[in-house]
């Protein structure tokens, strides 16, 4: 699904990623953990194609295709989805309208007709039920005045609507209380399948109690310094990141 080879990236003059290698197969969930400033969010932004970051070396492949030079919307059309740590507000644009635009742009790029309104409505109904979202919520302006939990739930709702091949959840647990965390995690679990892959970026182990990863990677100083199974997350929780820092 996703293959990252020797990825180096910087923002302004600062090197942040210094040779990332990562293989994610369809059906897998990978967790990327690491202390603040280790490059976790940079990695998600670079995979999504944020042009504020400059890729200086290495490549990103999605299903064998090198997407390193693709514009962010092209990556989205190919099935990359990023759940933002800080979703932005777009006043006056309802969640429904935003989703309709996004879905139809992707369909257009993939040579499909616009989705008929009845199909769209049906999909909205199904996905909002799946994620326990009140449909009134969908006519509100995108993220405007949303609570932290609502914003994150809205991100997962968009993920459900867009049905990506690769979903990256960037600190989806930050700012969530335990109930919201459970709802969001349940949503993600319901969307998991043999055909898609999920990368969970998180600082803490607690989200991984709900979204159980197949692999855990520790990012430090722009490199993956340790990889393992889900038990690695517990080890980290117990020993703290100083353990990693002292080893590197």
């Amino acid at each position: 699904m996703l293959s990252i080879k020797n990825l180096h990236a910087r923002v302004e003059d600062k090197d942040i990623l210094r040779g990332i290698n990562l293989e994610v197969k369809a059906g897998e969930v990978h967790a990327i953990m690491g202390p603040n400033g280790s490059g976790k969010s940079t990695l998600s932004s670079v995979i999504a194609g944020n042009e504020n970051y400059e890729v200086t070396e290495g490549n990103i492949y999605l299903e064998g295709e090198d997407i390193s030079e693709f514009a962010p919307e092209e990556r989205a059309h190919k099935g990359v989805f990023l759940s933002f740590q800080y979703p932005v507000e777009i006043p006056g644009v309802s969640v429904t309208n935003f989703m309709k635009t996004a879905i139809n742009e992707s369909r257009k790029a993939n040579g499909l007709e616009e989705m008929p309104a009845n199909e769209m409505l049906k999909m909205i109904r199904e996905k909002s039920e799946l994620l326990e979202i009140d449909r009134k919520f969908l006519s509100r302006s995108l993220n405007e005045g949303f609570s932290g939990g609502e914003k994150k739930r809205n991100e997962i709702f968009q993920m459900a609507m867009l049905e990506p091949k690769l979903a990256i959840l960037d600190e989806t647990d930050s700012g969530l209380d335990i109930d919201a965390l459970r709802i969001v995690a349940n949503g993600v679990n319901k969307l998991r399948s043999e055909d898609n892959a999920v990368i969970v970026i998180t600082h803490y182990q607690r989200l991984l109690d709900y979204i159980v990863p197949d692999f855990v990677h520790v990012l430090y100083n722009g490199k993956i310094v340790k990889s393992g199974g889900k038990e690695l997350a517990y080890e980290l929780e117990e020993k703290g990141y100083d353990w990693i820092k002292s080893e590197n």
Binding site: E73, V88, E89, I90, V93, S106
Partner: peptide, 26 residues
Amino acid sequence: DQVFYCNQRGIPTEKAIALIVNGFSK
């Protein structure tokens, strides 16, 4: 950041601006 957010959802920049402006003027 607004434009990137739209881009990430598959909405090209020009369309994203139209969307944001229309929302503003709604």
